[in-house]
């Protein structure tokens, strides 16, 4: 009787979980597997008459298998490697800036001071804006011709002529890093703040009794307790950094020249401008591999020796 009841509970559990699993399978697992498959094929969306998987009325074309040709072709292209080094710089600079600024803002907002609730609410505004809006907003601030910042600097007599932030590739790339940091750092702050508030006051009290000042408490109490949050922030920032596309679309379109072309933009252009979906997905799967690799690295560096309480 007990066994039958247990089985029945398990069946009910599966029943409840099944719709969610089905939805995840349809919208996550299937596109993931299918796009991986596409990266090994010669895709022409207009010529899908070859082999296919038939699921009732649904026909999923498999296209012609060409092995690793897309990957070898992509990796032989100097533009891929240029874009990769640029992407690594972009991600490195963005992750560092977003983490440090996010952490610093969390430290401030964790203190008690008048206006803190309002500031905490305002903090979320940049993060809650669509990235297209963020891009347009910063064009309005930084533009050579009508940018608010240039107007301010010129009127204050701090510069003789307007600054062209997007003229050179290097400065344009760093503008992208900073704008993206402005957009994403509040989310890191939110996570750090949640982590800080879960740290027991007793730990700080004990540290104070031991004579620890502000910086020692930060180093020996706050930071170790925030390790899982640091891991989360690093992983999310890294993945977001690798995949960032929309700001490039609004601010630079990958230019001037290829100077702000990252791997995600290169993959997007290859797929959606040149209609080379095979090489396009291959490019983007190399990004997926990089994201996974970085996650493992962060896990080793940040979480390896961390043992949660209880």
């Amino acid at each position: 009787m007990k066994t039958r009841r247990a089985l029945s509970e398990s069946a009910v559990a599966w029943l409840f979980v099944a719709p969610a699993l089905l939805a995840i399978g349809l919208v996550v697992a299937f596109p993931l597997v299918y796009s991986l498959w596409l990266s090994f094929t010669d895709v022409n969306l207009l010529r899908a008459t070859g082999p296919a998987v038939e699921l009732g009325a649904l026909r999923i074309p498999l296209f012609r298998w060409i092995g690793t040709r897309n990957y070898t072709q992509v990796l032989a292209d100097p533009l891929y490697w240029d874009s990769l080094w640029r992407t690594l710089y972009f991600v490195g600079a963005f992750v560092a800036e977003a983490t440090v600024v996010g952490f610093a803002m969390a430290l401030v907002l964790n203190e008690r001071f008048p206006g803190r609730p309002l500031l905490r609410s305002l903090l979320l505004v940049p993060w809650s804006l669509s990235r297209i809006v963020v891009g347009l907003l910063w064009v309005g601030i930084l533009d050579f011709e009508f940018g608010a910042l240039n107007g301010l600097l010129l009127r204050a007599g701090l510069v003789d002529s307007a600054i062209a932030f997007f003229k050179e590739g290097w400065s344009a790339l760093n503008v992208l890093v900073s704008v993206y940091m402005w957009n994403q750092a509040p989310f890191a702050t939110l996570l750090f703040l949640a982590g800080m508030q879960s740290i027991s006051d007793d730990l700080y009290a004990a540290a104070e009794v031991d004579g620890a000042g502000y910086w020692r408490r930060l180093w020996y109490v706050t930071l170790p307790a925030l390790r899982p949050i640091v891991f989360l922030v690093l992983v999310l920032a890294t993945v977001n950094g690798f995949l960032m596309l929309d700001l490039i679309y609004v601010l630079t379109m990958g230019g001037p020249g290829y100077d702000t072309t990252t791997i995600s933009w290169h993959g997007f252009k290859t797929s959606f401008t040149f209609f080379k979906f095979g090489p396009g997905t291959a490019i983007l799967y190399t990004l997926t591999a990089l994201c996974l690799l970085m996650t493992v690295v962060y896990h080793r560096l940040v979480l390896a020796r961390f043992e949660p309480e209880g």
């Binding site: 997007f166 601010l251 379109m253 001037p256």
Partner: peptide, 9 residues
């Protein structure tokens, strides 16, 4: 010329 015209979208 406007130096930023190369990155206009």
């Amino acid at each position: 010329v406007n130096p930023e015209v190369l990155t206009k979208t």
